[in-house]
Amino acid sequence: MRDAFSDQLYREALKDNNIYIVVADISPAGSMLKFRKKFPNRFINVGVSEQSMIGIAAGLAMKGKKVFTYTIATFSLYRPFEMIRDNFCYQNLPVTVVGMGAGTIYNNLGGTHMSQEDISICRSVPNLNIISPSDPAEMKSAVSYCVKNKKKETIYLRLGKSGEKNFTTKADDKWKFAKIRTIQKGKSICLISHGILIKMSFNISNTLKKQKIIPSIYSSHTLKPFDSKTFKKICKSYKTIISIEDHSEIGGLGSILREEAYRYKYDGNLINFSLKDKFLNDYGSQASLLKKHGISEEIILKKIYNLKK
């Protein structure tokens, strides 16, 4: 996903010389290196100084530049949070804050490198939109949107890392900002997620297919503004709605769906698989950490089977 981001940004920058990227000492992997070589004056590395990364990006944006700030999610968002709020959001600047390796992706580096609350924090800030693409293909569409940024507001773009597969390329429903996307059309069960855990939806679906159960799979790639209209339709169509996310149970997709379901008086089963409100460590693999939080394909399948009984 990281490569998809930098590759798309590079393509956009070839067409638009107003695009700048301000980074805080992040290793220039993939196309980022290409960007840096081709546009040395538009690739600004401020060093390990996230607060000035945001301030400088704000200054550039106030002069009409299209700016992306980029580093690992915790450092991108948490360290300079007040600058993001005051300089970007309060002044309503169309800047994209890129949080790389968000959620629990950096589990092997421990809690200081995980950002399990990023969406929750961003959601409460006015003028701050949130996009969490489900795969590299969605990432490319999202980057193009961020460049255009029709709403002219700040965007938090939540990135995975490397090696994610594409899941959404065959979907008829095209990626559109602030629109829940149908990736697979099925019946009675709805699996909805954002970010990298869409792979769980597909693995679960593959297992269920053997028992002739075909769930629908949705990508809720934009979390703010939330596509309430489509979710209303989802509420009407499914007896069971299951959300899966690599984010805290407080303030993420699970929370949003509970708020929305209450609004629409949904009386089916709404089950949220989100991270517990706990600092948990597992340096082995992301999958084993997620399992400690109660998120795994087995656990989700078991829940579905229990409902069917």
């Binding site: 607060q51 301030g55 990006a57 200054g59 002069k63 009409g64 007040e82 005051d86 300089n87």
Partner: peptide, 22 residues
């Protein structure tokens, strides 16, 4: 007025962005 300030320590970075833009 070119910047919303008030929280101290933020103006100089924004000024740097201005300076970088031209």
């Amino acid at each position: 007025l070119n910047a919303s300030t008030g929280s101290l320590g933020q103006g100089l970075s924004m000024a740097a962005g201005f300076a970088l833009s031209n």
